[in-house]
Design a protein around this nucleic acid. Structure first.
Lengths: 155, 155
DNA sequence: GCTTTTATAGTCAGGAATGGTCAAAAACAA
DNA sequence: TTGTTTTTGACCATTCCTGACTATAAAAGC
């Protein structure tokens, strides 16, 4: 079998901690986490910045020194608001990674269900647009994505 | 003795892995496969693009970096047929009307829910593709549609 | 109080571990 | 021979992991 990246294990652990909490946030110690997963402390920062970023709907606060901690909370935003923010942050052109990131974020924040997000990722992937090149490809991609998102929030 | 092409051996292996899985998809590592079949890693990409393409009813997702993988999924059997028929009748190019008609039909036959169909119509409308012209526009439209539909009916 | 020590966390650049693309060579089929 | 499919390798892109260095807060000593 294939080995799961440590980063994913840590992310799962943190997510579970948030889910299990009654306050809606997890308060953890960086060094303790690093010890638990046998990694260097800075990997925790990597996990936080790639998996619990503001774009993904999380807020992270921390404190250094004795008794220091990291607090990770899920931020709630209305679906419509999230989509509007996503639309705002998209320019006139978007590469495949940008489109996918946007969609994954919407999916993870519960705005789009997984299947829908995956369909949209397929629609905006390089494979679907492979006969286009460079700037034009990225422009069309952005256009398609925007049209889909607008359609999504238009009753 | 007649020697079977390595590509076919790899394709068979992947197919078996999908069939044997309970989740309906196989998650494999490119480098491990290459090692297993004593070929260069890029041959795996060749196998994927010639044997597990959307046209053949598969969707492929992957991730790079440590713990990276390739996930190959086969479409849902039930929805597959109507989608494949739709794709067959569309061909390599489709105008906006043809795309929309196809999607409305799929929506009415219950393969797609209304919202999803509407988003797909938005993605393939002339408005979304306005910077393209003529035959190219219709080809891209067909490609996008194909990728969305196959993705949608994949496991 | 002020300074020093200790206990945390943060940043960043680079190395390692994956997968992707493309074009050319080789093998095969018609 | 000629056209297609397979095989290969050089180069690229992305994600993860690590360690040296930095920053901040609390506690201890004065």
């Amino acid at each position: 079998m294939n080995k799961t990246a440590t980063t994913d294990l840590i992310a799962n652990f943190i997510q579970s901690a948030i889910d299990a909490s009654t306050e809606g946030f997890a308060e953890l110690q960086r060094s303790a986490l690093a010890e638990m997963f046998s990694c260097v402390p800075s990997q925790i920062n990597y996990v936080l910045s790639t998996r619990f970023s503001p774009e993904r709907g999380f807020s992270v606060e921390s404190r250094r020194g004795g008794g220091g901690y990291i607090r990770i909370a899920k931020v709630h935003e209305s679906a419509r608001e999230s989509v509007m923010n996503a639309l705002d942050s998209l320019g006139d052109a978007a590469d495949a990674t940008a489109a996918e990131t946007t969609l994954r974020n919407l999916s993870e924040s519960g705005v789009l269900d997984k299947l829908t997000a995956r369909m949209m990722i397929a629609a905006t992937g390089n494979s679907a647009l492979k006969s286009l090149e460079g700037e034009q490809r990225d422009q069309i991609r952005a256009s398609i994505l925007k049209h889909m998102l607008v359609s999504y929030v238009s009753e």
